[in-house]
Amino acid sequence: MLRRRHNDGKVVKITIDGEAVDARAGESVAAAVLAHASGATRTTPVSGAPRASYCMMGVCFECLMEIDGEPNRQGCMVRVEEGMSVRRQQGARDMERAS
């Protein structure tokens, strides 16, 4: 679990698994999710093992998340935007977009 050292940044309202969350402008989606809760940010499509962000620089692909209905996006490479909907993925994605 992460915490913000200062809370003076501009608030960006997003949802994480449907829950309203205040993120801060400039943060990546992965950072916002890590600050929201500890533990897994997805489970793997291979064995269902719990995983979370590892490298934060777009290399490891552990922070794959569903962002605005689009699965398997690298959460560390996308900045939060007002109204964004983020979901932690369970296993393999669906072929269709979620919404």
Binding site: R3, R4, S28, M57
Partner: peptide, 25 residues
């Protein structure tokens, strides 16, 4: 090393740089 909560040291630094965040605990 695949458990949630394990990151590279560089990842922690990126979180400080990009989000002003540090691990709690």
């Amino acid at each position: 090393w695949t458990l949630p909560g394990v990151m590279t040291a560089g990842a922690a630094q990126i979180l400080m740089k990009s989000a002003g965040m540090i691990p709690d605990g």
